[in-house]
Amino acid sequence: MRVTLFDYGAGNLHSLAKALATAPGAEVRIQEDPVRALDTDVLVLPGVGAFGASAARLEPGRQAMRDALERGLPCLGICLGMQLLFDTSDEGGGAGLGYFPGKVTRLAARRVPEIGWNTVEEDRTLAGTKLDTVYYAHSFVCRPTDASVVTGWTTHEGDRFPAAVRRGKVVGVQFHPEKSSTAGVRFVRAFLEEVAP
């Protein structure tokens, strides 16, 4: 199974690549070109960077990527990667993939960014594993137009927002599974086993 990380610039992909590689048969690769990244069995949008800069890197392949997801290409979007699955963001200009209708807005809380371990409520994202407490590091959150895509919620101060969304084989998570210790690695592996057996 070919698992491709779309690298749009900024930071640490090592932990995520290693977490993905724990799944049996996973061959993990990193690709900076958004069109070439689609020549894969599973696409992963990692979680580091700012929306505007990342949307610009995505732009040349945006339509092709969206079409691929609609045709059934499995995809896991993490943190910023989840936000790129939506239409637009208040963090920066440019368009996301629009796979999930809705926009990304700033956390409505006193303490922003939210940094630390928080719970996932009512998680039904994957059949194989249930999430409890996971690691978040973000200032912005997704606001889907249709709440039925939300497969897990979380709350920071008074703001309740999606911890996870899913439609078909496309999953977005606001937390960092690759930084959520054993539970997070188990989640990544369960995702790969479920969408690309």
Partner: peptide, 11 residues
Amino acid sequence: VQRTAERLFIP
């Protein structure tokens, strides 16, 4: 740092 990040799954 790289060798650590490849094996550590917390921040």
